[in-house]
């Protein structure tokens, strides 16, 4: 994970952004200051988009521009191919905000990407942002990002963005925002970032926004315990109180496999993580005596 702390101006390759929302997000990333120097559209190439050089494959794009990082804005059925091509062409970090990617695609690609030593964030999730270095890779809204010292690991996108809006309202900034998503099968998992945040000098507090669908939170807790984290770690686990007081709500959550509250809370608290069930409570608990 040493390749996460990207320097300002890191050259970025965007894959699959010829039109529509993908193009809109590419422009938003650029507006934030992200140095997008190449696009890969697989079919067009050559002419360029918004003045950015366009290529038909990742290897050509990387050898011509020196791109170090890739953001895939491809469709769900082509995301696996895009990630694989970018990893094999040599980028060290890939961000994939695309949702609804087939699990077996992720499974096959994730295995290969791991063997190549590439960090893959996604699919789904909002992506990676480093506000202090004016880098936004993915679909995290620019308006919730500001330089600060909070390391955010965001699982469910919409709930995480609400936390982001609340942070912005309270003038809280992030050392890094990592939106990993809630897919069962994903690239990097929340626990993978624990060693990084434990050592990152820019981060004084870590916030995890829980998803409750799998084992990610319990793995995260185990990693926090293992690394003997000295920084405050806070987590948002939304919905537990309502489930405890309403049986129909509780049954519904169970049917959607969203009811692992007790297991998650216990694991996190045993690792020393402070767990909150409301956004305001979470925001209020973030240490503010340190510079944000």
């Amino acid at each position: 994970m040493n390749n996460l702390r990207l320097k300002p101006g890191t050259p970025v390759l965007v894959i699959g952004a010829p039109s529509g929302n993908a193009l809109r997000h590419m422009r938003l990333m650029r507006d934030y200051g992200t140095n997008i120097i190449a696009c890969v559209t697989f079919s067009e190439g050559g002419t360029g988009i918004d003045g950015i050089a366009s290529f038909t494959n990742c290897a050509d794009a990387i050898s011509a521009t020196g791109a170090k990082v890739a953001v895939t804005l491809a469709s769900p059925d082509t995301t696996g191919h895009a990630v694989l091509e970018a990893a094999e062409a040599g980028v060290s970090l890939i961000i994939s905000p695309t949702i609804l990617v087939p699990i077996h695609d992720t499974l096959r690609v994730r295995r290969r990407v791991r063997d190549l030593g590439t960090v893959w964030i996604g699919p789904g999730g909002t992506g990676l942002a480093i506000p202090g270095n004016s880098i936004n890779l993915g679909v995290t809204p620019n308006e919730i990002l500001r330089p600060g010292n909070i390391g955010v690991i965001a699982m469910p996108s919409t709930l995480s963005l609400e936390v982001g809006f609340a942070m912005a309202n309270h003038h809280l900034g992030q050392s890094m925002w990592i939106g990993v998503g809630v897919d069962l099968m994903k690239g990097a998992r929340p626990s993978d970032f624990v060693p990084f945040f434990a050592q990152d000098e820019e981060t004084t507090t870590v916030v995890l926004i829980c998803g409750r669908g799998g084992t990610d939170e319990e793995e995260f807790a185990e990693a926090v315990g293992h690394f003997g984290f000295s920084k405050p770690v806070l987590a948002l686990l939304a919905g537990e109180n309502a489930a405890a007081t309403n049986s129909s709500f509780s049954r519904f959550l169970e049917s959607r496999q969203l009811s692992h509250f007790v297991k998650i809370r216990t694991a996190l608290e045993q690792a020393g993580v402070a767990v909150y069930d409301g956004i305001d409570d979470l925001i209020g608990a973030i240490p503010t005596s340190l510079p944000q």
Binding site: G211, N241, A242, L258
Partner: peptide
């Protein structure tokens, strides 16, 4: 879509599973 409480007072039209669950909890609180 799923009806959780047929006598419920508040209809929800939202996106994001976790955010909806969060809002349901907020309403109950």
């Amino acid at each position: 879509f799923s009806v959780v409480d047929k006598n419920g007072q508040i209809g929800l039209l939202t996106n994001g599973a976790a955010l909806t669950v969060f809002l349901m909890a907020e309403l109950r609180s």
